[in-house]
Structures are given as structure tokens and as C-alpha cells.
């Protein structure tokens, strides 16, 4: 089982959790996060579709490095990251992070750390289609601030 998959296909949470747990009786906690496509953002036109682009090669390497960093910071036993690319629709799953550990603290923290890192440091770009046309999504300063909580500086949105 690879730790990182970039794929157009959908994923199944139960299958991925089972794989992370498999053969490891020391797991006492599993945390997971799934990001999905919203149908709109407040004050914005409705989104009919979303196109996700990435930088093949760099994406996988960047997320592998993030997982290594997460494992240095927290006693994680298993990690799985899946990020979809291509055309997605409102309600579709975009990203999955699963972490396992002996205790819940590390599992929660490792999962949140990986998502905060991924939002600002992994080379993905979202383009929304709305009735007013297609537009690239702007990066958010709030995502840089989320990463800063872990002592990591990011100037992605700034």
C-alpha cells in the first residue's frame, strides 16, 4: 500500500482505514479527514464543477516529505493520503488523510498537521466553473496562518 496516491478515481474511507489498520494490533486510534467540493462559497456564485490540476512528480514527492515530517513530530503508526485530480462535481470527495497511532492525540494532530501542510505546500490548483464563467480559486491567508500554528512559515497566499 503506497502512502500517497494522486488519482482521478474516487476513494472509499472504510477500505482505506482497513488498510491502514491491517496487521497492526498496536493501533489504538485512527483519525481521518475528507475534503469535499462545496456547491458555493458565501457570497459567490454557485459552482457547477471543479477542475483540479497538479504538478506530477512534485506532488507525490512533496506529500511524501510532509508525511515524513508528520512522523517526526507525532508518534504515528500509519498514514494514507489520497488526493483526486481532474474534473469533480459538488459533493464529490477531493482529499483523504488517514492517520493511525497508539493514542488519539497523535492521530488527531498528525491528521490536522498534514492537511494544514498540504493546503499551502502541495502543488494543486483548483478551477471553479460557475454561471459567470470559470475562475482559478485564490489561495487563502487563513491557510498560511493554520500552518503557522505548527511553527512553519508559509508565504503561499501572501
Amino acid at each position: 500500500m503506497p502512502r500517497v496516491s494522486i488519482q482521478t478515481d474516487d476513494f472509499d474511507l472504510s477500505t482505506e482505514v482497513a488498510a491502514v489498520r491491517a496487521g497492526d494490533a498496536g493501533v489504538g486510534a485512527i483519525a481521518s479527514f475528507i475534503g469535499t467540493v462545496r456547491d458555493r462559497s458565501p457570497g459567490e456564485p454557485a459552482i457547477s464543477a471543479m477542475e483540479l490540476e497538479h504538478y506530477p512528480g512534485m506532488t507525490e514527492a512533496a506529500i511524501e516529505a510532509m508525511i515524513d515530517e508528520a512522523c517526526r513530530r507525532f508518534p504515528l503508526r500509519g498514514v494514507r493520503v489520497i488526493h483526486r485530480v481532474g474534473r469533480l462535481l459538488p459533493g464529490d470527495q477531493i482529499v483523504l488523510v488517514v492517520t493511525s497511532s497508539s493514542h488519539r492525540g497523535a492521530a488527531f494532530q498528525g491528521c490536522e498537521f498534514l492537511m494544514d501542510y498540504l493546503k499551502t505546500q502541495a502543488p494543486f490548483w483548483k478551477k471553479e466553473t460557475t454561471p459567470e464563467g470559470a475562475r482559478w480559486v485564490d489561495a487563502r491567508v487563513a491557510d498560511d496562518e493554520a500552518l503557522a500554528r505548527w511553527g512553519l512559515r508559509s508565504g503561499n497566499a501572501a
Binding site: 483540479l52 504538478y55 505546500q121 502543488p123 494543486f124 490548483w125 480559486v137 485564490d138 489561495a139 503561499n156
Partner: peptide, 10 residues
Amino acid sequence: VAFFPPVTGG
């Protein structure tokens, strides 16, 4: 070398 806008995955 690559140039790109700020990233927006997740």
C-alpha cells in the same frame, strides 16, 4: 524550473 500561482489544493 516551475512557475505557478499560489497553491489551492485540499
